[in-house]
Design a protein around this nucleic acid. Structure first.
Length: 631
RNA sequence: GCCGGUGUAGCUCAGUGGUAGAGCGCACGACUCAUAAUCGUGUGGUCCGGAGUUCAACUCUCCGCACCGGCACCA
C-alpha cells in the first residue's frame, strides 16, 4: 500500500493558536484527507514545540512551571484542531518521553558520525547580560555599557554541527530535485543563499535549563531548532526504529509558513544526511496572511477573528475561503468581505442551491432515485467532464495549487447548473418525458456525489452532508461515474449553505479573548534595580537635520540638539519616516550610550521609538525645553 | 546596497510574438424547479511608463517608476 506522511511545524505554545497556525494546519489536513481518499495509508503529524525560550518566559510571567504552562496551553491547540475538523493522526508534544529519547538518540548518531564537535566560544562576557560582546562592541575600558561592570574573558564550550560540510550535497540535491521546495520563488531564494556558502551552527545552549540535555554531555541543552526538527522522526518512533518510522519515513510533505522554510530545506536535510536518514520529498512554504491589507500584529491588535467568521459562515466556509482565495505560495489578504462574497457566490448559490433544486425536483416527481434509462443530449458531455475534472484536479493537487484545484471543481459545478437549465428538467414531468426527467435528475445527483468526493478533502462536513442528502448511508466517495444507486428514497434536506445577508449581520462583537489578544504582552524577563535604571540618561532633544545613509535602506543620520550640544545619531527609522517630516520633532535620546559606528557613520546616542511592526518615535506630549531629563 | 518577483477590467487574478481572458461586481434579457437562487447577453482595459528588436510586442531586450519578498543592516 502506498503511504503518505504529512506534517505541520510544531507550534510554539507560548500563546493560543492563531489564524496563521490554522492556515498551515488546514492546508496539511487537505493533503492528508486527499491521500486517504486515494487509498493511501496516511500519517498526519502536528504538535507543539514546548522547549522554547518564549514558553519558558510566558510560564514565568504567569507564575507557572514551564511544564504546567504547556499542559495548560497544549489543549487549546487540540481544541482548535477539533473545531476546524483537522484529521491529524498524531498530536505530538516535545515534552513527551518518546521525543526526549528520540532527540537524544538523533544527537548521539550525529555525534558518533563525527559531525558534532565541541568548540570554544570565547570573548568578553557580561554576566548580567549573559552574552558575549563582539570585537566591535568593545570599549577601551571593557565595561558593559548596560551594566557598567567589567567584562570577563570567558571561554564557553559549545557544540557545533558541521553544516558547512553539507553545502555541496545540498546544492546537488536541490539541482537534482527541482520540486524539493515549493513554491519556486522560495526555492530560488534558498539556492542563492546556499550558493553563498553555509557556516557551522551552534546546537547547544549551556545557560538554559528548559530543554533536553545532550546525551553525551548533560551540562548542555539541545538548541531548540535542532530538537524541534527531529520531532518529524521521533514522533514516528525513530528511537526504537519503530514500525511507523519504517512505514512512513521519509516524509512526503513538510508543510509550513514561508518564514521557516530555510530551517527545513537546509539545516534539517543536512542533519538527516549526517545521520544517514533519507530526506523528505517536499518542503512547502506557504505565504502569510494579512488582514484587510495589513500585517497581522498582536501589538497593534490586527488579527483574524476566526471565532466570529466561523460562527457566521461555518468551518467549511472558512476552510474553503482560505484555500480558494489565495494563491498558495503568495501572501494572502484575508478580508471578511471577500469571505462573504465567496460564501454566497460559490457555496450558497452555485453548490448549495444546485443540490437543493435537484433534490426538490426529485422529491416532487419521484418516490426514489430513478434509473437512468433514457440518455439524451449533454449526458455524455457531463460524464466526460467529470473525468476530465478529476484529472485536472489531481494534477493541481500535485503542485499544491489549491486555488486552481478548487476552481476546477467549481467549473464542473457550474456546468451542472447549466445542464439542469439547458435540459429544462422541470418541464419534463409529463408521462411521456418522465423517464428522461428521471435520467437527468439521476445524472445531476451523480454529479453531486462526484463533486462531494472532490471537495471532501477541503470541506469534509459539506461532503458528508451532500452524501446524506442524496441518500447515501455509507458515504461513497469513489471517483467513478455511475455508482449512485437508483431506487433509494431521498428526502429534501435543509439548504447546506443558507445565504447570509450582510445587512442582518451584527456588528463584530468584541469577545473577552479578543481583548486579551489586543493587549501587548510584556516581554519582560529580568528585573533591574532602580540604581541600574538611574544609570541611563534620557534627554529631550530636537531633530535639526536628517539624511539617508549610503548603502543602508533603514538608516538615517540625524543631528539632534539636546540643549547642551548637538549630537550625531544613527537611527533605523528610514523606512518609517521621510527625512523632511523629522526636522523639528522633539524626541527622547539616550545620551550616555557608548558611541558606535554603523555603516561608517558615527552614532553618539540613540533615539527611542516604539518598535513593533511599525516604528513610532517617542515624543514628549507637549514641547519641553531641550535637554530636559526623562525619568 | 545586492539578488529575485510582481505591475492586465471596479475587485481577485489567468494568459499568449499575430483582433485582450475568467470569476466576482454592474446592466439587460430568459426561466420560474431552486436558497431574491440558475442560465444567457452585455458593460468594462494606453495589458505601469519610455526606448529598442520585429512585418507584428501585453508577450522578447534595455532603461525608469511603484509595490512585494530574500540577504546585508536596525545601538
Amino acid at each position: 500500500m502506498n503511504t503518505f506522511y504529512v506534517t505541520t511545524p510544531i507550534y510554539y505554545p507560548n500563546s493560543e493558536p492563531h489564524a496563521g497556525n490554522a492556515y498551515t494546519t488546514i492546508a496539511a489536513d487537505v493533503l492528508a484527507r486527499y491521500h486517504r481518499l486515494k487509498g493511501y495509508e496516511v500519517c498526519f503529524l502536528t504538535g507543539v514545540d514546548e522547549h522554547a525560550a518564549n514558553v519558558f518566559n510566558a510560564a514565568k510571567e504567569e507564575g507557572l512551571t514551564p511544564q504546567e504552562y504547556c499542559d495548560k496551553i497544549a489543549p487549546t491547540f487540540v481544541n482548535l484542531w477539533e473545531r476546524l475538523n483537522i484529521s491529524h493522526d498524531i498530536f505530538f508534544r516535545t515534552t513527551s518521553d518518546i521525543h526526549k529519547r528520540g532527540a537524544q538518540k538523533f544527537l548521539n548518531v550525529l555525534y558518533e558520525n563525527g559531525d558534532v564537535y565541541k568548540a570554544k566560544y570565547e570573548g568578553f562576557y557580561c554576566i548580567s547580560c549573559e552574552k558575549f560582546f563582539a570585537e566591535k562592541e568593545l570599549t577601551e575600558d571593557r565595561i558593559c555599557p548596560d551594566h557598567k561592570i567589567p567584562l570577563q574573558w570567558l571561554e564557553e564550550e559549545n557544540y557545533f554541527f558541521r553544516l558547512s560540510k553539507y553545502a555541496d550535497r545540498l546544492l546537488t540535491h536541490f539541482n537534482d530535485n527541482p520540486d524539493f521546495v515549493y513554491p519556486e520563488t522560495r526555492r530560488n531564494e534558498l539556492l542563492s543563499f546556499l550558493e553563498s556558502g553555509l557556516q557551522d551552527v551552534s546546537i547547544s545552549r549551556a545557560s538554559l535549563s528548559w530543554g533536553i540535555p545532550f546525551p553525551f554531555d548533560p551540562e548542555h541543552i539541545i538548541y531548540i531548532w535542532i530538537e524541534a526538527l527531529s520531532n518529524y522522526i521521533t514522533a514516528l518512533g525513530y528511537e526504537t526504529d519503530g514500525e511507523q518510522f519504517q512505514t512512513f519515513w521519509p516524509a512526503d510533505v513538510h508543510m509550513m509558513g514561508k518564514d521557516i522554510t530555510r530551517f527545513h530545506a537546509l539545516l534539517w536535510p543536512a542533519m538527516l544526511m549526517a545521520a544517514d536518514i533519507p530526506l523528505p520529498k517536499h518542503i512547502v512554504g506557504h505565504g502569510w496572511l494579512t488582514k484587510d491589507g495589513e500585517a497581522l500584529s498582536k501589538t497593534r491588535g490586527i488579527f483574524i477573528d476566526m471565532d466570529s467568521d466561523i460562527a457566521t459562515y461555518g468551518v467549511d466556509a472558512f476552510r474553503y475561503y482560505l484555500l480558494r482565495e489565495f494563491s498558495f505560495g503568495n501572501d494572502g489578504d484575508y478580508r471578511p468581505s471577500r469571505l462573504h462574497e465567496r460564501y454566497n457566490a460559490d457555496l450558497a448559490n452555485d453548490l448549495g442551491n444546485l443540490l437543493n433544486r435537484v433534490l426538490g425536483l426529485l422529491n416532487k416527481n419521484f418516490d426514489a432515485i430513478p434509473e437512468p434509462t433514457t440518455p439524451g443530449e449533454f449526458d455524455d458531455e457531463i460524464k466526460t467532464l467529470a473525468h476530465d475534472t478529476l484529472e485536472t484536479f489531481d494534477s493541481h493537487m500535485q503542485t499544491f495549487a489549491y486555488d486552481i484545484a478548487l476552481e476546477t471543481i467549481w467549473e464542473f459545478v457550474r456546468r451542472i447548473n447549466r445542464y439542469v437549465q439547458q435540459t429544462q428538467v422541470w418541464t419534463l414531468a409529463k408521462p411521456e418525458t418522465k423517464p428522461r426527467m428521471g435520467t437527468i435528475l439521476y445524472n445531476s445527483l451523480e454529479a453531486l456525489r462526484f463533486i462531494s468526493a472532490l471537495i471532501f478533502p477541503f470541506i469534509p462536513d459539506t461532503a458528508d452532508k451532500i452524501q446524506r442528502q442524496i441518500g447515501s448511508t455509507d458515504s461513497d466517495y469513489t471517483l467513478e461515474w455511475g455508482r449512485l444507486k437508483a431506487g433509494k428514497k431521498v428526502a429534501k434536506g435543509e439548504p447546506i449553505f443558507p445565504r447570509v445577508d450582510l445587512k442582518k449581520e451584527k456588528p463584530p462583537q468584541k469577545t473577552g479573548k479578543t481583548k486579551s489578544e489586543e493587549q501587548p504582552k510584556q516581554g519582560k524577563t529580568d528585573l533591574i534595580s532602580f540604581t541600574e535604571f538611574q544609570r541611563m540618561d534620557f534627554r529631550v532633544g530636537r531633530i535639526i537635520s536628517a539624511e539617508p545613509i549610503q548603502g543602508a535602506d533603514r538608516l538615517l543620520k540625524l543631528i539632534v540638539d539636546i540643549g547642551t550640544e548637538k549630537r550625531q545619531v544613527v537611527a533605523g527609522i528610514a523606512e518609517h519616516y521621510p527625512t523632511d517630516s523629522l526636522i523639528g520633532k522633539q524626541v527622547i535620546v539616550v545620551v550616555n550610550l557608548e558611541p558606535a559606528t554603523i555603516r561608517n557613520v558615527e552614532s553618539h546616542g540613540m533615539v527611542l521609538a516604539a518598535s513593533g511592526d511599525s516604528v513610532v518615535l517617542t515624543t514628549p506630549e507637549t514641547e519641553v525645553p531641550l535637554g530636559t531629563q526623562v525619568r
